[in-house]
Amino acid sequence: LLPSFEIGAWTEDDVYCWVQQLVRKGDSSAEMSVYASLFKENNITGKRLLLLEEEDLKDMGIVSKGHIIHFKSAIEKLTHDYIN
């Protein structure tokens, strides 16, 4: 489970856990499981996660359009939940 809904306070480890949970919950393929490490390697914290754009995801090595859409949708939901 994630430490809190205060996404802005999430550490790199918290984001890593979130990506792992996202991959487990989704209908995503096994190749998506490597993405948790990509987020950690790129020092993505909660604040940075909320700022990620499609180009950032591509720069991190996420090239599948479907996977990018999956992440963007999940990040938008997080942003919405965080604001409300």
Results as ranks from 00 to 15, higher is better:
1 L>S: 12
1 L>Y: 14
1 L>W: 12
2 L>I: 15
3 P>C: 06
4 S>M: 09
5 F>N: 14
5 F>T: 15
5 F>K: 15
5 F>M: 15
6 E>S: 09
8 G>H: 15
8 G>V: 06
8 G>K: 09
8 G>W: 09
8 G>E: 14
8 G>N: 13
9 A>F: 06
10 W>G: 02
10 W>C: 00
10 W>L: 03
11 T>Y: 00
11 T>G: 08
11 T>K: 07
11 T>D: 08
13 D>R: 03
13 D>Y: 01
13 D>P: 05
15 V>I: 03
15 V>N: 11
15 V>A: 02
16 Y>V: 08
16 Y>R: 03
17 C>E: 12
17 C>M: 12
18 W>Y: 05
18 W>E: 03
18 W>I: 00
19 V>Q: 07
20 Q>V: 05
20 Q>K: 11
21 Q>T: 10
21 Q>P: 02
21 Q>K: 08
21 Q>S: 13
22 L>D: 01
22 L>G: 06
22 L>E: 15
23 V>E: 13
23 V>C: 12
23 V>N: 06
25 K>D: 13
25 K>F: 08
25 K>T: 12
25 K>A: 11
25 K>S: 12
25 K>G: 11
26 G>A: 07
26 G>D: 12
27 D>N: 13
27 D>K: 14
28 S>F: 15
29 S>L: 08
29 S>P: 14
29 S>H: 12
30 A>C: 09
31 E>S: 07
31 E>Y: 04
32 M>L: 14
32 M>Q: 08
33 S>Y: 06
33 S>G: 11
33 S>H: 11
34 V>F: 15
36 A>S: 04
36 A>L: 01
36 A>T: 01
37 S>A: 08
37 S>M: 04
38 L>I: 06
40 K>T: 00
41 E>N: 05
41 E>K: 13
41 E>F: 01
43 N>K: 14
44 I>N: 02
44 I>R: 00
45 T>L: 02
45 T>S: 07
45 T>Q: 01
46 G>Y: 06
46 G>H: 06
46 G>T: 05
48 R>V: 02
48 R>K: 14
48 R>A: 07
49 L>E: 08
49 L>S: 01
49 L>P: 01
51 L>R: 10
51 L>A: 13
52 L>M: 09
53 E>G: 10
53 E>Q: 15
53 E>K: 09
53 E>N: 14
53 E>T: 14
53 E>H: 04
54 E>D: 08
55 E>K: 14
55 E>R: 09
56 D>C: 00
57 L>Y: 07
57 L>N: 01
58 K>D: 06
58 K>C: 08
58 K>P: 04
59 D>W: 07
59 D>S: 12
60 M>T: 06
61 G>I: 03
61 G>K: 02
62 I>P: 00
63 V>E: 10
63 V>M: 15
63 V>C: 11
63 V>I: 10
63 V>R: 11
64 S>C: 11
65 K>L: 07
66 G>S: 14
66 G>L: 10
67 H>Q: 05
68 I>L: 11
68 I>P: 03
68 I>M: 05
71 F>I: 13
71 F>A: 08
71 F>K: 00
72 K>E: 00
72 K>W: 02
72 K>G: 04
73 S>Q: 15
74 A>C: 10
74 A>N: 06
75 I>T: 03
75 I>R: 07
76 E>Q: 11
76 E>A: 10
77 K>I: 09
78 L>V: 02
79 T>Y: 10
79 T>N: 14
80 H>C: 12
80 H>N: 13
81 D>I: 06
81 D>C: 11
81 D>A: 10
82 Y>D: 10
82 Y>F: 05
82 Y>T: 12
84 N>C: 11
84 N>Q: 15
84 N>S: 13
